[in-house]
């Protein structure tokens, strides 16, 4: 108790945050019991009927929910891959520009979309990508028939992934640029002496130096395999593209909040949470073990 006399102010400092965490993180966790109930708001947790694993069985039997899980996986994995490679290559190319002012200006422009919300960007994209919109007008000058980017199941995923990469690639280069700045210039000088071309220098010095960072970024992103981006999909989709574009989070919103299937909605949410948690723990463990990366 001697230590407590000295450290009580620390506990007091943490108390407010703990109250918030308890109310808005830990109490809702207790609510996952609903996943095993046929929850009815007017009956509550204690009065609703227990149904065991029925909600989960239902989840894998219903055609729409299985489709939604597939959609989520496909969209999330494609985003993950492109959000790693595009910034990687962009950082390499940007690193070749030796005029500092130009480099800064380019950075300023490409970071911008990251800070705008999907409501703003959604509003803009719906207008730009309409069949008679700006993009289709430019395409038509090349003789391309109008494309219904946001209303055609063959195009929707493409549009979602491209627009997500467009929004985030600039911001995602930051970490690579930091790694590039940390490369020892003596390596390049030595290569220069040996007569290596810039391409060979890139191949044998630059890329090997930033691959470890890319590996860490890629590993940590694994926790998002079931996160296909609620904000984006919700602001871009419409009933025409539910087949290919509906994801777990938007599906939960519609079934649970709009249609009132509370137990079922909780079950899908829990399914997602558990898988994500396992992936996050595994990926952080791997990042710590191989790259000595620690966040906390």
């Amino acid at each position: 108790m001697k230590t407590l006399r000295k450290t009580w102010p620390f506990h007091v400092m943490l108390l407010p945050s703990m109250i918030f965490l308890l109310l808005f993180s830990y109490v809702p966790m207790a609510g996952i019991v609903m996943a095993f109930q046929d929850y009815k708001p007017w009956l509550g947790f204690t009065g609703s009927e227990w149904v065991g694993l029925d909600n989960f069985r239902y989840l894998f039997e219903r055609q729409d929910s299985v489709q939604v899980i597939w959609n989520t996986l496909i969209i999330a994995v494609l985003k993950l891959v492109f959000n790693l490679f595009v910034p990687f290559i962009f950082a390499l190319l940007l690193n070749e520009i030796r005029r500092v002012r130009l480099q800064r200006t380019i950075q300023t422009m490409v970071y911008l979309p990251h800070f705008l919300s999907w409501v703003i960007l959604g509003g803009i994209l719906i207008d730009l990508l309409a069949t008679d919109g700006f993009v289709n007008r430019i395409l038509s000058t090349f003789g391309v028939q109008p494309i219904f980017f946001l209303g055609d199941n063959d195009w929707f995923r493409f549009t979602v992934i491209v627009s997500d990469v467009w929004k985030e690639f600039g911001y995602n280069t930051i970490i690579f640029l930091a790694a590039l700045a940390g490369i020892n210039p003596a390596l390049y000088e030595a290569a220069e002496m040996d007569g290596a071309s810039r391409f060979r220098q890139t191949l044998h010095i630059t890329i090997p130096s930033i691959v470890p960072i890319a590996a860490v970024v890629g590993t940590l992103a694994l926790g998002n395999v079931l996160n296909a981006g609620f904000d984006q999909i919700f602001n871009l989709y419409n009933p025409l593209v539910y087949e290919k574009g509906d994801i777990i989070d938007t599906f939960v919103y519609r079934t649970a909040i709009l249609n009132g299937e509370m137990g079922f909605g909780t079950a899908i949410g829990l399914f997602k949470s558990v898988i994500s948690m396992v992936l996050i723990l595994l990926s952080y463990r791997a990042a710590y073990k191989w790259a000595n990366y620690r966040i906390f």
Partner: peptide
């Protein structure tokens, strides 16, 4: 213990529906 309480809240969530009910 405190730091685990913080981290766990980030790693695992109850999902949209329980949150709404709280």
């Amino acid at each position: 213990i405190y730091s685990w309480l913080f981290v766990f809240s980030m790693v695992f969530t109850g999902g949209l529906v329980p949150f709404y009910i709280v």
